[in-house]
């Protein structure tokens, strides 16, 4: 069975992460200031595409183009994206237009076209003129993990390079919804947004290998984590770092050393992609062959995830 490696990684977040060589060296965001640090999109996206693009689309186009450039891949064998909520800005624009429209009148099509969850992967494919496998996974706080599982399967079945992404944008109504769902204030304050894109490939002499991705019942997560590491003859205490994130759950007291990435970039459904990027950079720049790191994402009361990466 082919192994799967990370060829390139690009993230846009509330930290200064875009084009940052090593995310583990990023300075912390000011407490409570969750303002997206965006690049100058005009440097990465054609004006004709940019003028119609929402923030989510701009983040995705800039990150995906850069990840492809860094990998030297012009057109991937698959484009796979994970998103918890899809194009919220365009969804709201379309729904508001529908509400305002009188019976029998037309509604502007632009927002409708881009409000679909798959509009990101579709626009990237259009831009690249890529007609290969194109998929979007929408699984709330595990959207990136399911996209990653799909990407790994594609590589194991023969794809040479897969463009894999995760993106979610924040709009005002999410604050109101979180309040109505009685989220505690410290969780509401962390509502955020971000985007990560990767090129994953099947062959590499050195680099960071994606060893395993496991979806687990949240209540069994810690025992499943031990079992997973044991199956690879690894021990959690030997990990270079354990990166932990939260979507819809409050922070937990965990019985092992770890770093909480959602404390750095905030909570958004696909934030585990940032944790994954952080783990990859940590192993790449600080690890030696054989070292490993875990990314543990507490999604909701039902399901959570474990990702295991190893330096090769």
């Amino acid at each position: 069975m082919r192994r799967v490696f990370i060829k390139s990684a690009v993230s846009i977040s509330v930290l200064d992460s875009f084009l940052q060589e090593d995310l583990s060296q990023l300075s912390e965001s000011p407490n409570g200031a969750w303002t997206l640090k965006e690049p100058n999109y005009r440097d990465y996206v054609a004006p004709a595409m940019l003028r119609r693009a929402s923030k989510m689309m701009k983040m995705s186009l800039a990150s995906s183009q850069t990840a492809l450039e860094q990998s030297g891949i012009q057109s991937p064998d698959s484009i796979i994206v994970g998103t918890g909520l899809g194009g919220m800005t365009d969804t709201v624009k379309f729904l508001e237009g529908s509400i305002r429209a009188e019976e029998g009148s037309l509604i502007a099509p632009g927002a409708f076209i881009q409000s679909g969850h798959n509009s990101v992967s579709g626009q990237i494919a259009l831009l690249l003129k890529n007609q290969q496998y194109n998929m979007t996974h929408v699984q709330k706080g595990l959207s990136f993990e399911y996209a990653l599982l799909d990407a790994m399967l594609r590589v194991k079945e023969g794809d040479d390079a897969v463009l894999l992404g995760a993106v979610d944008e924040k709009i005002g109504v999410l604050d109101q919804l979180a309040e109505r769902m009685t989220w505690p204030e410290d969780m509401r304050r962390q509502l955020s947004e971000g985007c990560s894109f990767f090129v994953v490939e099947g062959e590499a002499a050195t680099g960071v290998e994606i060893v395993e991705v496991k979806i687990s019942k949240t209540e069994d997560l810690l025992s499943n984590l031990d079992r997973l590491l044991e199956s690879h003859s690894l021990n959690l205490t030997d990990s270079v770092q354990n990166f932990v994130g939260y979507s819809e759950l409050p922070k937990a007291d965990l019985p092992f050393a770890h770093q909480v990435y959602t404390d750095r970039v905030g909570r958004y459904f696909s934030s585990s992609a940032f944790g994954f990027h952080l783990a990859s950079d940590t192993l790449k720049h600080q690890g030696k062959p054989g070292d490993f790191a875990t990314v543990i994402h507490f999604s909701d009361l039902q399901f959570s995830s474990i990702m295991l990466l190893r330096r090769v």
Binding site: A48, R52, S105, L106, I107, A108, P109, G110, I113
Partner: peptide, 17 residues
Amino acid sequence: LGLDSIDALEIIVILDN
């Protein structure tokens, strides 16, 4: 101006509304 087919749909909506 370099408009495209989606813009054409938008212009149809402008004329209607």
